[in-house]
Design a protein around this nucleic acid. Structure first.
Lengths: 369, 369
DNA sequence: CCGTATTTGTTCGTATGTATT
DNA sequence: CAATACATACGAACAAATACG
């Protein structure tokens, strides 16, 4: 019987209590060695029977969070024994089969395999609750470090306590791709997305574009930064920033919202001669929308992507895009993590690595000068 | 205060039942996969309440002796088997970022995450010595099972001893994609590649092709089976099998050899109206070679792929290919492995799963009737 | 050391919910 | 649809270990 089988189906009372207690332990409200409320106390607090309380406690006891002493009470266990030499490293990404991760993981694997480490793979499907669950599971495993791509990195992180636990246990972690704003001092390897957004927007401005639409993702830090670069390029060129020219979308509506918005703008003859897109995937959707509305790319309007994925080129068509050095990023993250494992948090090495983006000129844009 | 005192003093009912059942399991009176008496039956047999029966069963369940299935009953997991409960499963593939693995891993992950397992990822780069190293490393780790895509599955496996060790340690493993011939009785999930090769060759024959070249990989079992299907289709149609029409290549020379061979054949006006390729990647190389030699696809010559990867379609071009149900394969392998972990090697379930291939008609072939 | 209150451990009975056959 | 089997939940009682005045 797994701990959390039917979470969504029913709000089981013993599961509720179990999770409440687990949260208190992980967040530090109940510390190592603390006595938990007695079974009767919990029973009356939660208005459930003592049997149900016992069921919850037995799960926590089995999972190693607490232990019971006959006649004394139930107590919180200390940190689990960590041998700290498991040669296991967890890699937590948002998606597994998304178009850039296989190569990032490949890069990580190259370095780690060479050094005799193994990868424990986890994915969050870009959901914070899944990220929370992943970290909880990892806290119970024997791992030497974590490479993590935070889910929805722009939104406030509600499980900071789990990262604190990692710090307590001295398990080093490296963020890739993005980072929660509160964690900006932590080790991280990421593309300089602001510069990327700047570069590609500047390229459009330099080639004579005046009305540049932006399509950005709002729930991760990459989207925010690419947008920031877009704004910088406009300001530098003395072009007025018009918020109406920005289409923001979320992870959940990425499949329809950008298409619909651009399609409507095109139908309504909205003045535009270029679209800067969050990534190649979105760029293809935008191109589809423009085509469906009767506009031709690049003749009528230019479109740019981001990531230089396999989608960016096919049969004579090359999207103008930004190189995402996927394997390199994985390798750098793995190397940084290994340094942290070997030298401890206080090691001298650079902890924040910004990778310089480069633009790839394709044929999805033309010069309008 | 000794332990024995307590046991003699009090014969706890749930302990008695638990030990009775454990004894029956260890002595073989209850065999792997057998259904235990229902909770109500035990309750009346032992003259104890159903709650007490459940307490006994929950201990056995936690210790890995039995597992309960809602609505079906409680079943025996098998003796000594499962001192392990690491909730880690190793996934060993040839490549990580190759065009089908991300999705296979995705499918595996879906099932394993749901059941609370984590994936330890390893890759062999299709080299037997790396596979050997992987298995050695995994034997030292705490894992409950392995899903493995054998490297160069056609060539004799020199490290059978490592698989024997896995058997000794009672670590179940499931082959995917292919299987060493000596291990054919072991659990495996694979595409019916022979049928796939047959289907796509038959399609070419039915559409009037007479001189069908085959490009196959020689060092894995998939290549051998696709070739076998190709031969079957020819024989069925009464077409003479000509070994000269086959281009065999190895993993190591996949990047140049198929291209060169086809290019030379095209330049030398070798009689051919279709090319059956090992996979989509090779098909694209073959198309490149044909184009470079002045032949047009599909007007002058038809080309087929295999796997229905993202490479198979781009901008109005659709390769005629065979569907590779990547995620499904991963899911089935994970489910099979979980069954083996729970029920032991002797479980009743089907151990060799052949997935039926389907053909996808694109525009890389035309009818020549 | 005793007695009492507290706390966990064992066991029973009953009722209802839900998945499988 | 009904029967079976496991899952959740409540209430009650007594036992055994511990804490404390």
């Amino acid at each position: 019987m797994t701990i959390d089988q039917n979470i969504k189906q029913k709000e089981l009372k013993y599961v509720k209590l179990m999770e409440d207690l687990k949260e208190k332990i992980l967040s530090g409200k109940i510390k190592t060695g603390d006595k938990l409320p007695s079974e009767n106390e919990l029973s009356s607090q939660y208005q459930i029977s003592r049997q149900t309380v016992r069921k919850a406690l037995s799960i926590l006891e089995n999972a190693g969070y607490v232990y019971a002493e006959h006649g004394r009470g139930t107590f919180c266990c200390g940190p689990l024994h960590h041998s700290r030499n498991s040669k296991n490293i967890a890699v937590v990404t948002t998606y597994l089969s998304d178009y850039i991760f296989p190569r990032v993981i490949q890069g990580i694997d190259t370095i780690l395999t060479r050094e005799g480490y193994s990868i424990i793979l986890k994915n969050t499907k870009n959901s914070r609750s899944r990220e929370e669950k992943c970290l909880e599971e990892l806290l119970q495993k024997d791992i030497d470090g974590i490479i993590i791509e935070p889910s929805k990195s722009q939104i406030y992180c509600r499980h900071m306590n789990l990262y604190q636990k990692l710090d307590e246990y001295n398990i080093p972690y490296v963020f890739i791709q993005g980072c929660f704003s509160k964690m900006n001092h932590k080790p991280q390897v990421l593309l300089d997305d602001c510069k990327g957004g700047y570069l590609i927007t500047k390229y459009l401005i330099d080639t004579g574009h005046k009305n540049i639409i932006g399509v950005f993702k709002s729930d991760d830090i990459q989207g925010q930064n690419r947008h920031k670069g877009y704004v910088m390029a406009l300001q530098e060129a003395g072009i007025y920033y018009d918020a109406d020219k920005i289409v923001w979308f979320y992870t959940e509506d990425r499949k329809i919202h950008p298409y619909e918005s651009i399609y409507q703008m095109a139908l309504n003859k909205y003045m535009m001669d270029a679209v800067v897109c969050y990534n190649d995937q979105i760029a293809l959707k935008v191109i589809q929308a423009l085509n469906d509305a009767g506009l031709k790319v690049p003749e009528d309007i230019s479109v740019t992507g981001y990531d230089n994925s396999y989608m960016a080129r096919s049969n004579g068509f090359h999207l103008t895009t930004i190189v995402h050095p996927q394997e390199k990023l994985g390798e750098m993250a793995a190397e940084l993590l290994l340094k942290l494992i070997r030298n401890g948090e206080e090691s001298q090495c650079e902890k924040k690595i910004l990778i310089n983006p480069e633009i790839i000129i394709g044929n999805s844009c033309i010069c309008r000068n």
